[in-house]
Simulated scan of single mutants.
Amino acid sequence: MAEGTKNPVRFLREVGREMKRVSWPTRKELTKYTIVVVLTIAFFVVFFAVVDLGLSELVRLLLD
């Protein structure tokens, strides 16, 4: 068994200690990263919608 599963209290204390050591992003960095993620997702949504539309039209032309 893993060390942390033998003693849940000890495990949670160690998790708390590790969380204090984490380098958290600032509000400005978090906002910037969120905007980048949303724009990237929007780009891929549009890209795949265009590809899907194009392939649908190609199949329609081939089958007619």
Rank of each mutant, 00 (worst) to 15 (best):
W24C: 02
E57S: 10
G16L: 08
D52Y: 08
V15H: 05
G54C: 13
V46D: 04
V9W: 12
K20P: 00
T31C: 15
V37F: 11
V45P: 00
M19R: 06
L55M: 12
L63D: 11
V59K: 05
L30D: 03
K6H: 07
T5E: 14
F47N: 00
R10L: 14
E14P: 00
S56W: 14
L63M: 15
T34V: 13
F47P: 00
V38S: 06
T26A: 07
Y33L: 12
T34M: 10
R27N: 03
L55K: 08
F48I: 15
V46T: 06
R21I: 07
R17H: 01
D64Q: 13
T40H: 10
L61F: 15
V37D: 08
D52R: 04
D52V: 05
T40S: 15
V46E: 04
L39P: 00
W24I: 14
G16M: 04
T34Q: 06
R17L: 10
E18Q: 08
G54D: 12
A42W: 14
F48Y: 13
D52F: 02
V38E: 06
V50K: 03
F43Q: 01
L58R: 03
L58T: 07
K6G: 01
V15W: 09
I41Q: 03
K28A: 12
D52E: 15
N7W: 06
M19T: 14
G16Y: 01
A49Q: 13
V46Q: 02
I35T: 11
W24E: 07
V22Y: 10
R17A: 02
I41C: 11
F11A: 07
G16I: 11
V37Q: 12
R13P: 00
M19W: 07
I41K: 08
K32C: 05
M19I: 14
N7L: 09
R60S: 13
V38M: 15
E57Y: 05
G16Q: 04
E57N: 11
K6R: 07
L62K: 07
G4H: 11
R13Q: 07
E3Y: 15
T5L: 15
E3S: 06
L61W: 12
R10C: 01
I35Y: 12
M1C: 04
A49K: 06
E3Q: 05
R60N: 15
D64K: 14
V50W: 11
L39F: 09
A2K: 14
L55R: 02
F47T: 00
D52G: 05
V46G: 00
E3C: 05
